[in-house]
Every structure is written in C-alpha cells, then in structure tokens.
C-alpha cells in the first residue's frame, strides 16, 4: 500500500515495575527504610517487541486474556504511556505530532459531580482538544445525540444522573470531536438497546468516513459486528493478526488449551 499507515507501532516493548507489598505513602516508605526492609518489586513485561501497522479506515479489535497487554497498547496509542523501546507514530495524520485521537472515556471520567451536564460537556470537549468556539457550534448536535428524555437535566449537577446518562453524554462528546482515530476500551455497548443501536450506527458512519477505530473487547459478538480485523495479544506479543473469525478461533483454541 502506498499510503502511510494511520498507526505505526515499531518494535515496542514495555515493562512495568509493580510494587509487591504495600508500603503506600511516605510514612510507610520511611518505616520500611528504617526497618531495613527493601520494597519488593516485580517486573512485568506488558509488551514485548510488538510491531504492527493499522491503516486508515480499518476497524481493529484487540483481543486477548487479561494481562495480555492489550490495554497497555491502547494506552500507548492514546499517548498516556510511552514505550520503553520502539516507537508509536501516526504518519497519516494531518499533524503527525498531534494526531486527533478520541479515547472514549470510562463512565464519568472527567465529569465533576457538582457541575451541570452542559458544563461537563464543555470540559470534556476541551480535554479532547476542542476550542470553546468549536464546542459552541457542535453543542446542539451533541445534545441531540445524547437524547435525554428530560433535557432540563442538562442544567442539573451530574451527581443527579443515572449511569446511563453519564455514558450517553460522554459518548456523545467523544463522537463529535472529528477524530482521526477512535480508541474504545470495553465501552462499546452502553446504555439501553436504542442507544446501543445509535452507537453502532455512529461507528458505521465513522467507518464509511474512513476513520480508524481501535477497540479492546471481550465480547465476541461486538467484535464480529464491527471489526474488519482482529489482533490477538498473548503475553505481550502478537499471537495472531488478520481476519476476525480466524483470530477469534485462534483465541478460543488457545484459551481452552
């Protein structure tokens, strides 16, 4: 393919040092030091020399067991974790140093309970890199997408919201940020069935517009429904990469072996 890939992961490795026994805090650390105990540390290889290219317009499912490294890889694509070695690049982005990436946030992340829905929408937009002017012009669309039964809730503090309302609003902001790359971590199917259908419709629209979607899921049906490609991670390495059914088959044979 002559076009540069949307995401290029090259020889990426990542280790984490996990503190063994819990000496949380300065007091604990000082106490341990005075008692002459060394803090136990365990090194975990989250990713081990991973290389892959993802092209614009692909919808890629990352699958694998817990601890296989898929969330670490997703965090690296979101640029919240850096690889120890290797590199992650976005050569096809308009500005490769600042690709427009929209991570779908966990329920309520970045929402302040005492602020209203509207205030939180603006804040979420700012966090995802949108200017206030852009947010003002997109606000009606966002609200229409969230489709609250009682729109007056938008002026109420979000601590009065149900979890479904949180998710609707968060999802609505994220899909209106004009992202080049969308990252989804297990939050694909949210809300009631009507809203779920809306989310899937929006994802199809993104696919038609040639945007890149990368998601982590344990739900085979969701993977089959939207993914055009699946990558199986196992012990921090790519174990299978290709057509959805084949990768899922590899996962399940491996799983039950």
């Amino acid at each position: 393919m002559s076009r540069p890939p949307a995401v290029s992961v090259t020889n990426v490795s990542k280790q984490f040092t996990v503190a063994g026994t819990g000496y949380a805090g300065i007091k604990g650390a000082l106490g341990a030091m005075l008692a002459g105990k060394r803090r136990e540390r365990k090194v975990v290889h989250a990713l081990n020399d991973v290389s892959l290219d993802i092209h614009a317009g692909e919808t890629v499912a990352l699958i694998g067991r817990n601890g296989s490294g898929k969330s670490t890889l997703l965090s690296m694509l979101a640029n919240v974790i850096r690889p120890d070695t290797g590199s992650v690049n976005f050569p096809a982005s308009e500005d490769p140093t600042h690709p427009r990436i929209a991570p779908l946030l966990e329920v309520g992340a970045g929402f302040h309970p005492d602020l209203t829905g509207t205030q939180n929408v603006y804040f979420n937009g700012a966090i995802l890199g949108l200017s206030r002017a852009t947010m003002e012009s997109r606000y009606p669309e966002i609200i229409a997408f969230a489709d609250f039964e009682n729109p007056e809730y938008l002026d109420a503090p979000v601590r009065t919201y149900s979890s479904g309302m949180f998710v609707r609003l968060g999802f609505a902001v994220a899909v209106h940020t004009d992202p080049e790359i969308i990252l989804i971590d297990e939050t694909l199917a949210v809300g009631d069935s009507v809203f779920q259908e809306k989310c899937y419709a929006r994802i199809r629209q993104f696919q038609e517009e040639g945007r890149t979607i990368i998601f982590v899921s344990h739900d085979d049906d969701a993977v089959r429904r939207v993914a055009t490609r699946a990558i199986l991670l196992s012990h921090g390495k790519v174990a299978a990469d290709g057509a959805v059914e084949e990768t899922l088959a590899a996962y399940h044979s491996n799983h039950h072996a």
Binding site: A78, L105, G110
Partner: peptide, 11 residues
C-alpha cells in the same frame, strides 16, 4: 483526583 482522566487522555 484526575487519574481516571489522566489514564485515558493525553494533555
């Protein structure tokens, strides 16, 4: 306090 956000979004 903002770790849920820090864990997901770059800024």
């Amino acid at each position: 306090k903002q770790m849920p956000l820090v864990r997901k979004v770059y800024f």
